[in-house]
Every structure is written in structure tokens, then in C-alpha cells.
Deep mutational scan, measured.
Amino acid sequence: TIDDAFRAIERAIQAENEGRYREALKHFLDGGEMIVTAAEKEASQKVRNLLLHKGKEVLEWAEHLAEWILE
């Protein structure tokens, strides 16, 4: 659900702030994927587009974090 997705993102932010970057990455990926999944089930085109945009933002952040971890 969207609530689960945002809880995962909150955990990711907390982990990132505490320097637990790999854990943060996992939570960002989980949250982003949950948002995209919820968007695919959404009946309203406007809400679907907003959710897809937010999911994409979260997944892009996860990608940047992963690249930073690997440096």
C-alpha cells in the first residue's frame, strides 16, 4: 500500500541519516517499487501519473545512492 511505501521511505531516510547506507538503499528501493505497484492499480489517471512520478523519483534517488556506495 501507499502507507507501507511511505513507511519504507521514512525508514530509508532515518537509516541514511544514521549512516546505514545499504539499509537505506534497500528501504528506498522497497518504497519506490511499492509506489509504482500502487500506481499500476490506480483507477484515476491523474493519481496514477502522480504516483508514477513519485515512485520514479524515489527509485532514481536509490540509484544515485547505490552509485555513491560503490565509489
Rank of each mutant, 00 (worst) to 15 (best):
T1A: 10
T1R: 12
T1H: 09
T1K: 07
T1W: 10
T1E: 08
I2A: 05
I2Q: 01
D3N: 11
D3R: 13
D3S: 10
D3E: 13
D3P: 05
D4E: 10
D4V: 05
D4R: 09
D4F: 03
A5N: 01
A5W: 11
R7V: 06
R7S: 08
I9P: 00
I9W: 03
I9C: 06
I9N: 02
E10L: 10
R11L: 13
R11S: 06
R11E: 05
R11K: 13
A12C: 11
I13F: 08
I13W: 09
Q14R: 08
Q14P: 00
A15L: 13
A15P: 02
E16R: 12
E16L: 15
E16S: 15
E16Q: 15
E16T: 15
N17V: 13
N17P: 02
N17H: 10
N17E: 09
E18N: 08
E18Y: 03
E18S: 06
G19D: 02
R20Q: 05
R20C: 08
R20W: 04
R20M: 05
R20P: 02
Y21N: 01
Y21A: 01
Y21S: 00
Y21R: 06
Y21C: 08
R22C: 15
R22T: 12
R22N: 12
R22G: 07
E23V: 03
E23G: 01
A24I: 15
A24P: 02
A24N: 01
A24R: 02
L25P: 00
L25E: 00
K26F: 08
K26Q: 12
K26R: 10
K26H: 09
H27S: 05
H27K: 02
H27N: 06
H27W: 14
F28G: 01
F28H: 00
F28E: 00
F28Q: 00
F28M: 04
L29N: 03
L29M: 08
L29E: 02
L29H: 05
L29D: 00
D30L: 14
D30H: 09
D30Q: 14
D30C: 13
D30N: 14
G31T: 05
G32C: 13
G32A: 15
G32F: 15
M34A: 10
M34E: 03
M34H: 03
M34T: 03
M34N: 02
M34P: 02
V36T: 08
V36M: 15
T37K: 15
T37H: 12
T37F: 04
A38L: 15
A38V: 06
A38E: 02
A39F: 08
E40N: 12
E40T: 15
E40S: 13
E40K: 15
E40Q: 14
K41Q: 10
K41A: 10
K41D: 06
K41M: 11
E42S: 11
E42L: 12
E42M: 13
E42R: 03
A43M: 12
A43T: 14
A43G: 08
A43V: 13
A43D: 06
S44A: 08
S44F: 11
Q45G: 11
Q45W: 06
Q45H: 08
Q45K: 09
K46F: 12
K46P: 07
K46Y: 09
K46H: 14
K46A: 15
K46V: 13
K46C: 14
V47K: 08
V47A: 06
V47D: 05
V47I: 13
V47H: 04
R48V: 06
R48E: 05
N49Y: 05
N49P: 00
L50P: 02
L50S: 11
L50A: 14
L50H: 10
L51N: 00
L51D: 01
L51Q: 00
L51A: 01
L52T: 05
L52M: 08
L52K: 06
L52H: 05
H53N: 13
H53A: 15
K54M: 15
K54Y: 15
K54S: 06
K54D: 03
K54R: 07
G55Y: 15
G55A: 15
G55Q: 05
K56N: 05
K56V: 06
K56S: 05
E57C: 13
E57D: 10
E57W: 11
E57V: 11
V58Q: 00
L59T: 04
L59C: 09
L59H: 03
E60F: 05
E60A: 15
E60L: 12
E60W: 08
E60R: 11
W61S: 01
W61L: 05
A62R: 01
A62Y: 04
A62K: 00
A62G: 03
A62C: 04
E63W: 12
E63D: 07
E63K: 14
H64Q: 09
H64L: 09
H64Y: 07
H64E: 12
L65R: 00
L65H: 00
L65Y: 03
A66M: 06
A66H: 04
A66T: 05
A66Y: 12
A66E: 10
E67N: 13
E67I: 08
E67C: 12
W68S: 05
W68D: 03
I69S: 01
L70W: 11
E71D: 13
E71W: 07
E71C: 10
E71L: 09
